[in-house]
Nucleic acid binder design. Structure first.
Lengths: 219, 219
DNA sequence: TAGATTGTTAATCGATTAACAATC
DNA sequence: TAGATTGTTAATCGATTAACAATC
């Protein structure tokens, strides 16, 4: 994979690859066999040259004069993004948001499967959600050590507990966190955090409405 | 406000303003009175010059030799972002995610208040969630016409219903949508959509983990 | 072969940051 | 006044896109 040798892949380009994959998946379901960068660009709301450029960072996937074979390009993108396999998820925080994430069908559809749930509330510990037992956050180490680990933590705790839980996760070897709390998590190098800050996006939306500006953002 | 006259405010700059506001809010709670761009930058994980530049698009808010007064800068940012007032929210889709959004404390804390919930499932219509009655999506027009409207729609329906509901919302005058579905919504000019695509972010996280790259994104 | 569309270069555009004069 | 930090310019850096040769 190119990106190992040249670290010149633009940050947002990778996010766009995921966007392309989403749309290709849609096209594949419709039975479409081949598509041009022009038509895919329309669908994704980007520039066709940008699609070709983004793909060029990783190789040559098209056929000149024809376009891209939907099925094979989709597979290539899955390989590039690392989603050509199953990823297990650990939910940390079984509140409203956490339980919603647990039931979010989209995740399972893409091969992201919850394998364990943690919470700190004794009243919740021991009860079941979505077929999984809620375990106490303090048993995180035991779980990872004995019964199995998980690849990605979904952090949906309260603001207070966010950094503490992050510390625990890292201590026991978790390297990827999808962070739904508004806290800027402090993590060492080699640990990856993606923030999903709904309030920030809501603020941007307000700004756009009152100014009438067309500012937009992917993701 | 500057942005009305010069449309040169970079897209991500506005999102960063919201980020600054979030951190200033935190500092204000701690009782801090004044802060330099240097220290605020550390807190937000950005470059100090960038903070000063972002602010410069909208005016002069600091004191040379001193820094920024936390309280007053926060107020200015709230005004710029348009969040110095109450915004009402309409929830469309009362599934797991929708109900989680409804209970999300962060929204209320920032002055975003749900005023109505819609769903298409007759079994849900008429029941209460979070103190609000669930209404049938087809009564959207009546609600907006008679009893009151709302400023922002939170779209958390299934994939199938997303575009249809969007059409309805627009028909009855809603101009802002926070979209939690993976659908690229088709909207006319003057209607603003922000996509919160958790799966896209999850994909990016996978890429970062397997490549060990430091790619990161705000929001 | 003619038509189409990729892959890639080069030009453009926009965003970030270093540097420093202004000034508290 | 000396020290500090803003506001702003100019330089750098990076990302987007137009254009076209390569080629199916």
């Amino acid at each position: 994979m190119q990106s190992q040798y040249s670290p010149k892949v633009p940050k947002i380009a990778v996010l766009r690859l995921a966007l392309y994959a989403k749309n290709l998946d849609f096209l594949e379901r419709q039975g479409l066999e081949i598509i041009s960068s022009l038509r895919l660009a329309e669908l994704c709301g980007v520039n066709p040259a940008q699609i070709r450029k983004d793909l060029a960072y990783f190789g040559q996937f098209g056929v000149r004069g024809r376009g891209y074979y939907v099925k094979s390009l989709l597979q290539e993108l899955h390989t590039i993004l690392g989603i050509n396999r199953r990823w297990t998820l650990g939910l940390v925080g079984a509140g409203n948001l956490g339980r919603a994430l647990l039931h979010h069908a989209q995740f399972a559809r893409e091969g992201f499967v919850f394998s364990v749930i943690f919470d700190k509330d004794p009243a919740k510990v021991g009860t079941q959600v979505g077929g999984l037992l809620i375990r106490h956050i303090n048993t995180l180490g035991q779980w990872i050590g004995n019964e199995g680990s998980f690849d990605i933590a979904m952090l949906a705790t309260g603001t207070q507990a966010a950094q503490t839980c992050t510390g625990l996760l890292i201590k026991y070897g978790i390297r990827a966190i999808l962070n739904f709390t508004p806290v800027k998590l402090q993590v060492p190098e080699g640990v990856y955090v993606e923030d999903v800050d709904m309030t920030l996006r809501l603020n941007l939306l307000c700004y756009r409405v009152i100014t009438g500006s067309e500012h937009s953002l992917n993701g």
